[in-house]
Design a protein around this nucleic acid. Structure first.
Length: 448
DNA sequence: TCTGGGGTCCTAGGACCC
DNA sequence: TCTGGGGTCCTAGGACCC
């Protein structure tokens, strides 16, 4: 493959990165599939009491409806719109068709979501990378996108970097096409608001505003040190470079998933622990299903809890080895929830798995793989250390040499109570024992 | 009827190890 | 025995993106 031509910052000097963004994607697919919706306001998103808008058709946008707006507000602004919950299989199918089309242009395609992707034109079959040539390619691409999707159109931006291509695709929406000529990048950015730079959201914009920075040109006046002090190492240095259109990020095809999660917001807050546990269990089941479908297993189980006041808590526990066992994932999730005060009511609950490994767990816990912890005099510290060393996580399966399989009910934080449910005493029996002696040989179930 | 659901990346602090 | 420093892993939270 050809190497892109670069300047001394590693930034390309030819417009070889293309960004496609399908216009009002979910709503467009709905209008394509239901002719009665064409030309009318369509809102796709959560239709429940606490739903928000995912996508509004351009007809709905004319009424001030936009994504992330509460659906209730959208109903007030545009009562005659069609409010739809969304048909994600249709969106995924259409997305796949578009991504395949992109891959026929260049093998280097990086999808960002169902409706967006970068394409590296250095790997495309082109005579040159002049503005005229890439413009021609983009016009042809837009036509083909409409053809293969049956009428969904997209906006295309082309530039010398991901930053410029992405900003360019947004300049002429919908159905737009913008190629930024090499050398014009900084002139394009300077008058724009800092929020055009991906990664500058409300919090960063507010911090910048407080020091009088609104535009990219004003952002250029800040030194790296100032930005790092304000925003942290990574964000500060990154933003310093992007403000100058210095962006050498590559197009990465096939990025692997790092986590899988499921979350639900309920129409009313739930405070009942038993109900919350049941909901968590169901979510753990969904996560496990997706994990297994992808032939993955994960080492860290997390829960997310949003309380009645919208404050959000997360708790996680990491197993010694990856798991794809739904019962174990559910148990860990419930054990993590047990430590939280949810008496005020919960509006959102979620379960996730990360630390994904590319294989399915067989039987990992051969006894000799778990080193016996060495125990010294200081009780609490020793037990806490032993728990960490064994990787005891509440909810995890535990092999007990003498008494068969069980699972940990509570452990950690210097707490010395661990419960087993063992095969020996029959299913469903929860045995508990207090380990107030650091000698783990005392660690055995009481009489059944 | 304020504020979804699926993700990614970063930070900061503590524990632990060498 | 005391004093570190650096690297890594883990957890909780926050910002951001579509």
């Amino acid at each position: 493959m050809r190497q892109p031509a670069c300047d001394d910052h590693g930034v390309r000097t030819e417009p070889t990165i293309l960004h496609v963004d399908l216009d009002a994607f979910y709503a467009s697919v709905e209008q394509r599939d239901k002719p009665s919706l064409r030309g009318k306001p369509v809102v796709v998103g959560g239709v429940g009491g606490r739903g928000v808008v995912a996508t509004a058709s351009y007809e709905a946008r004319a009424f001030g409806v936009h994504s992330a707006m509460p659906t209730a507000e959208a109903r007030r602004r545009c009562p005659n719109a069609a409010f739809l919950a969304g048909r994600f299989h249709a969106y995924r199918d259409t997305s796949r068709v578009v991504m395949d089309l992109l891959r026929s242009i260049s093998p280097l395609v990086e999808p960002l979501s169902l409706d967006e992707a970068f394409v590296d034109l250095v790997a495309a079959d082109l005579p040159d990378h002049s503005v005229a040539t890439v413009s021609g390619l983009a016009r042809d691409l837009k036509r083909r996108v409409e053809n293969v999707t049956g009428g969904v159109h997209g906006s295309v931006g082309i530039g010398s970097s991901k930053l410029i291509a992405k900003i360019a695709s947004d300049l002429d929406k919908p159905d737009g096409l913008v190629v930024v000529a090499p050398g014009m990048e900084r002139d394009l950015l300077r008058p724009m608001q800092v929020t055009v730079i991906p990664g500058v959201g409300p919090a960063t914009a507010e911090r910048l505003r407080r020091v009088g920075v609104h535009t990219v040109e004003e952002l250029e006046q800040l030194t790296v040190d100032e930005l790092v002090r304000m925003l942290g190492r990574a964000h500060g240095t990154g933003l310093f470079a992007l403000a100058r259109a210095e962006d050498d990020r590559e197009v990465h095809p096939e990025r692997e998933a790092k986590s899988i999660s499921v979350e639900d917001t309920y129409d009313t807050d739930h405070a009942d622990k038993r109900l919350l546990e049941a909901l968590l269990e169901r979510q753990a089941g969904k996560v496990t299903e997706r994990l297994r479908k992808a032939r993955l297993s994960g080492r860290t189980v997390s829960i997310k809890v949003r309380l009645h006041d919208f404050s959000t808590l997360s708790r996680s526990a990491t197993l010694p080895e990856p798991s794809d066992d739904g019962r174990q994932i559910a148990r860990i999730a419930k054990a993590l929830l047990a430590d939280l005060d949810t008496s005020g009511g919960v509006r959102l609950l979620g379960v996730g798995v990360s630390g994904l490994a590319d294989w399915i767990q067989e039987d990992l816990f051969a006894d000799d793989e778990v080193p016996e912890p060495e125990i010294d005099a200081d009780t609490d510290a020793a037990i806490a250390a032993a728990q960490r060393r064994r990787g005891w996580v509440p909810g995890m399966d535990v092999e007990h040499t003498e008494h068969g399989r069980g699972w940990v009910w509570g452990a950690g934080r210097g707490v010395v109570t661990v419960r087993f449910e063992t095969a020996e005493t029959g299913p469903g029996r929860v045995l508990s024992l207090a380990v107030d002696d650091p000698d783990l040989s005392a660690f055995r179930p009481p009489e059944a």
